[in-house]
Structure formats: structure tokens, C-alpha cells
Design a binder for these strands. Structure first.
Length: 566
RNA sequence: CGGGAUGUGGCUCAGUUUGGUAGAGCGUCUGGUUCGGGACCAGAAGGUCGCAGGUUCAAAUCCUGUCAUCCCGACCA
């Protein structure tokens, strides 16, 4: 490719709308342009990166025995009624009507479609297992699209669905995908972790996330350096503390705490650390008001709570609902004498003489003790894990890191096949629902994650396997015929060897070309200048290294292959 | 959906308080000088100031409405 013919408008300044690095750099380097909030055009260079990511995914999915198909974006309402999700999916689904006033959705995902498709044409256990996938746009009307490609409303996803006759088969399919995903992210050259995830509302027994490590990521993961344990923060289990507080139980006392509402305020007011407090959160679980108590400096984990209660709707109670059952409002709530079920976190069960609200505005209780002053309905692991917690597997201290969720695999079981009546005949001639799994990779998000993880102050540093081009040739002055001739010679040599190369034939100053080459992140740069050319040599440099090597023109191809590791 | 902010040439922004008919830098085009890390000189093009109303002799500027974009929040009281 001649740079002069390339459609790659680079920007010197950062567009003001871009907050995170990947967004800024992809805009500046001419990879993406925004069409509307959360919707982007992929420019030629981005398209090349995406294609490379997709091809790696394809190769690995095919290797695992899956087949690619392509399903529609527009999906009829009836399909979603069958699974019950037309009502459940809510605001996040883009909906539209045709001229006959019939309802449609832009597919946020494709479980319904694939299930009905397979149901229509697969009737026997002999046709199973079956793994089908597509790479296609998905539409989710995000409450707040942000961070460029990281959380868009239109995005590219690879989604694969497995159909098995039994749960053993599902395990096999799931493991194949698990391995295939590892191969994909290894090949993409990204630093990532596989973490246990909650399968939550989707049901099923097992789920893993593939998280690319980056401080700007939206997911938080917890892992152990001593063993293999790794989970996202929703899933990570917290053990009950080993040490028990054995200090003598003191007498319960009510203290006036006028105007002190948050744990922070009360802690400062009483001069006791937040860890000596207990906070009481009121929730509405399937219509019933319940209370949860956790240590003052901890965060409640709603996923754990939801799973523990086996409820479908869970939301914090409104203040007026709280007032109905209790004399106090937010800020003075406590478990003592509260007329509703109370669930306590494991840690609270080990605390003694703690502080909590008195259920009377402006008052708190001190020296509260569970068992003596109140009895919870149950004690359970209900909080988020934090750095320093003990690993549930080996007991060593856990680490916490942020990352970008780029892949997620689930065992679905029969959730969709049952709801939609998708069945096959087993060996005994009995009708059974398909046992399903679903497996996603955010393709466009992966591109952003790669930038997030691979950049410096000058621009993007593409991992070689997904770089839009592998090599860029920069003749320092295109008007110098000698340089131009050598540049074109090298260009042709590399092209003939099947290497993807850009020749920067623009009549620009060297500085401009270097800046652009760095910005768009081509892994290998060959600089042709008159000084070194006198010795018949050119410079060759890796984008991620500072210094260049001088190489004889005849050696360039070998050196490039060496640098690219091909 | 709440709170905050912003919409002025392709990009970054000034001008708005105190109304007088639009500016800078970058980018683009032409010519020249330059030429190893975003050059310099000279010239040029390019804007119904988001949109719609209103006030006024006069509106980018004031008022009302509306649309869009961005940030924070929408679970930790």
C-alpha cells in the first residue's frame, strides 16, 4: 500500500470527546470515526485489524469443530415472546416497527434465533453435538455508551452456541471452547486472565470470563498468585475470617449521633474505624423487604445476595418503603429490632461490640453483638472480595486487578430450549430439550483492549498478529531519487514475500512520517536515509524498541522476517 | 432517568459577563524556501455561531423551547 493512497486521516490533536487511551488513539490514528453516540465507522486500517482478529477466531472455532453461519440482525417479536425476554430485556433492546406495525428487535444476542433455527431442523440425538457460530453486529441500547469501542451500542461479536444431548456432552463442548478461547487470546498476543464468573440469572452451572488486563478496564478480577484461583469480583468467594474476636461482650448502649448518616461520618464522630461498624442495607427481593448487614468498610455483592435468596427481582428499597417498617430512614438503620428478615455477612458473625444504626433518626447503637441483640435469618458470604482476602483454595492473600472483559463462556443448560420447546428425540425415542452453551467474544472491544494494553506516548503499538500492516517503509525524502528507488525496491521485495507493507511515498518531512508511523502503530519501520544508504544500508526498527539497527539492503527481508517472527 | 457541562470552519478552542453583524492555532489549497522526529515565508478558500421561536434598530452574545454530545450518578444510605 502506498501511504499517499491510504485513507487514514490522522489527527494532531485529541478530539475532546475521547476519555480513554484506546478511544483517543483510535480516533487520532484514523482507525475509527463516530457516527452517533456509541456507534462507530471502522476505517480501512481498523477493518484490517478486525479482519485479522476475526480470522484468528474463525480458525480456532473451526478447529474446535464449530461451523460458521450468519443470522439476521432484525428479529421478530414473536421469537422473543417465546423465551419471555421481549418483556424482560427492557430498555436495552432496540425495537422497531415495520409498515404493518409489527414489532421487531435489533438483535442484542441470538439465543432465541439459534434455538428456533436448530429446533426446526435438528430432530435426533444423532445430529448432536452441534456447534454453530457467527461474527456479526450486535445492538444494545446501553444506558450510557462510553469509552469509544469499549461500550458501544453497536458492536461486533463472535457468538457461538453449542447443542448437546446431555450434560456430559455440554461439558465436552464447554471444554473445547475454553481451550479454543485460550488459543485465540494467546494468538492475539494479549495479556489476559481466565476467571470464574457468575452465571447468575442465565442459570447453568459454570461460566468463565476472559479478561484482558488493563487499569482502565471496567471489570475487577481477583486472583491468587500462589495457585490458579481467579474469579471476577462478583463471583470471588470470601471465607469466614479465621480469627474470632474474643473480647468480652459489653453492654448495649444508645448514643445520639445528630446529623451523622454515612458510615464515614459516624465513624469520624465516634472515633471508631469503619471496620468496627456494621451497615444495614434494605432491599426489596421479589416484593419482600429484607435487610443485609455487612461490615462498614465492605461492599455488598448483589449477585451473591440474589443467588443466595434465589430471587429474580432485587433492588434497594426506597426511603419511603423503609419508613413503612421502621421509624428511621437511611443513615440510622440497624439490625436490632428491625421487623424484617436480616441476613448477615460472614464477617459480621465474627465481630463483637460493633456500631450500627438504632432505627431511630439521629441515634446509633454501640456494643452491638449478633446472637445477643439480634438473630439473623441466615449468615452467608455476601460481600465483594478485596485485595488481601484469603484465597478460598489455598489460603494465601488474593490480588485484585482491573481488566476488560473480552470473552465470556456459559453453560446455559435448558433455559432457552425449554422455554421455546426446542427438543430432539433421544435413543429411547423420548423428547428432550437441547442442552445448550453459549460463548461470546467481543471483537471490536478486543481491538480497543489491544490498544489499551499496547501503546506509548507516541501512539499505538499493535501486536504483530493483528497489526493492520506489518511493515512501514519511510524514505526520509521522497524527492531524493536514490532513496525513492531503494524504497520501492524494498517495497517490491517485501510484497513479493507476502508481507503487508506500507510505503510512505508522501512528500512530507521526515518528522511527519515518523509521527504518523508511530501513531498508527505499525510494528516494523524501515527508514531509508541518504547517510546510511551510502554504505548500502537502511535502518530497521521495532515499534516497541527505542533503537534501530543498520542492515544491508540485501538483508532486509531476512531481518523483517526475524523481527516479525515469521 | 437525575445532576453537571458543552455545542462557533475538518480538529483544538477564544469571543457570550458588558448585544453593534465572527477570530486564533492546527489542518486544507497555491507559490517559494526547506527536508532525519508534526518546518518557514507569502497568498487563498472555508462558518445560516446546533436547531426553532422570541426580545431588540441590531443577537454567537439576552429569553423560551428543542435537539445533540460529553462527564458524574442512577446499589453501599
Amino acid at each position: 500500500m502506498k501511504y499517499s493512497e491510504l485513507f487514514c486521516p490522522t489527527l494532531r490533536e485529541v478530539p475532546s470527546e475521547a476519555e480513554v487511551v484506546s478511544h483517543q488513539l483510535l480516533l487520532r490514528a484514523g482507525f475509527i470515526r463516530k457516527t452517533t453516540a456509541g456507534v462507530y465507522t471502522y476505517m480501512p486500517l481498523a477493518q484490517r485489524v478486525l479482519r485479522k482478529i476475526m480470522n484468528i477466531i474463525r480458525e480456532e472455532m473451526d478447529r474446535a469443530g464449530a461451523q460458521e453461519l450468519l443470522m439476521p440482525i432484525i428479529q421478530p417479536r414473536e421469537l422473543w415472546e417465546q423465551s419471555g425476554r421481549w418483556a424482560v430485556y427492557g430498555e436495552e433492546m432496540f425495537r422497531l416497527k415495520d409498515r404493518h406495525n409489527r414489532d421487531f428487535a435489533l438483535g442484542p444476542t441470538h439465543e432465541e434465533l439459534i434455538t428456533s433455527l436448530v429446533n426446526a431442523d435438528v430432530h435426533s440425538y444423532r445430529d448432536l453435538p452441534l456447534m454453530l457460530y457467527q461474527i456479526q453486529n450486535k445492538y444494545r441500547d446501553e444506558i450510557r455508551p462510553r469509552f469509544g469501542l469499549m461500550r458501544g451500542r453497536e458492536f461486533i461479536m463472535k457468538d457461538l452456541y453449542s447443542f448437546d444431548a446431555d450434560y456430559e456432552g455440554l461439558d465436552v463442548s464447554y471444554n473445547k471452547m475454553y481451550e479454543a478461547y485460550k488459543r485465540v487470546f494467546d494468538r492475539l498476543n494479549l495479556k489476559y486472565r481466565v476467571v470464574e464468573a457468575d452465571s447468575g440469572a442465565i442459570g447453568g452451572s459454570e461460566s468463565h470470563e476472559f479478561v484482558v488486563l488493563a487499569d482502565t478496564g471496567e471489570s475487577e478480577i481477583v486472583f491468587c498468585d500462589n495457585c490458579d484461583y481467579a474469579a471476577n469480583v462478583e463471583k470471588a468467594s470470601c471465607l469466614a475470617p479465621k480469627e474470632e474476636d474474643t473480647s468480652p461482650l459489653l453492654d448495649l448502649e444508645k448514643i445520639a449521633t445528630p446529623g451523622q448518616k454515612t458510615i464515614e461520618e459516624v465513624a469520624r464522630f465516634l472515633g471508631l474505624p469503619a471496620s468496627r461498624h456494621v451497615k444495614t442495607l434494605l432491599y426489596k427481593a421479589d416484593g419482600e423487604i429484607i435487610a443485609v448487614v455487612i461490615r462498614g468498610d465492605r461492599e455488598l455483592n448483589e449477585t451473591k445476595l440474589k443467588n443466595f435468596l434465589h430471587c429474580t427481582h432485587l433492588a434497594m428499597a426506597e426511603e419511603n418503603e423503609v419508613r413503612k417498617i421502621c421509624a428511621a430512614g437511611f443513615g440510622s438503620l440497624g439490625p436490632v429490632g428491625l421487623p424484617c428478615k436480616v441476613y448477615a455477612d460472614l464477617e459480621v458473625a465474627r465481630m463483637r461490640n460493633f456500631v450500627c444504626g438504632a432505627n431511630e433518626d439521629g441515634f446509633h447503637l454501640i456494643n452491638v453483638n449478633m446472637g445477643r441483640d439480634f438473630v439473623p435469618e441466615a449468615v452467608a458470604d455476601l460481600r465483594n472480595a478485596v485485595k488481601g482476602d484469603k484465597c478460598p483454595v489455598c489460603g494465601k492473600e488474593l490480588e485484585v486487578q482491573r481488566g476488560i472483559e473480552v470473552g465470556h463462556i456459559f453453560k446455559l443448560g435448558t433455559k432457552y430450549s425449554e422455554a421455546m420447546g426446542a427438543t430432539f428425540l433421544d435413543q429411547d425415542g423420548k423428547e428432550k430439550p437441547f442442552i445448550m452453551g453459549c460463548y461470546g467474544i467481543g471483537v471490536s472491544r478486543t481491538m480497543a483492549a489491544a490498544v489499551e494494553q499496547n501503546h506509548d506516548e507516541d501512539g499505538i503499538i499493535w501486536p504483530v498478529p493483528i497489526a493492520p500492516y506489518q511493515v512501514i517503509i519511510v524514505p526520509v525524502n521522497i524527492k531524493d531519487a536514490e532513496l525513492r528507488v531503494v524504497a520501492e525496491e524494498i517495497y517490491k521485495t517485501l510484497l513479493a514475500a507476502g508481507i503487508e507493507v506500507i510505503l510512505d511515498d508522501r512528500d512530507e518531512r521526515a518528522g511527519v512520517k515518523f509521527k504518523d508511523a508511530d501513531l498508527i502503530g505499525i510494528p516494523v519501520r524501515i527508514t531509508i536515509g541518504s547517510k546510511s544508504l551510502k554504505e548500502n544500508k537502511v535502518e530497521i526498527k521495532k515499534r516497541w524498541e527505542k533503537d534501530a539497527e543498520l542492515v544491508a539492503v540485501s538483508e532486509v527481508l531476512a531481518k523483517v522476517k526475524d523481527f516479525l517472527n515469521i
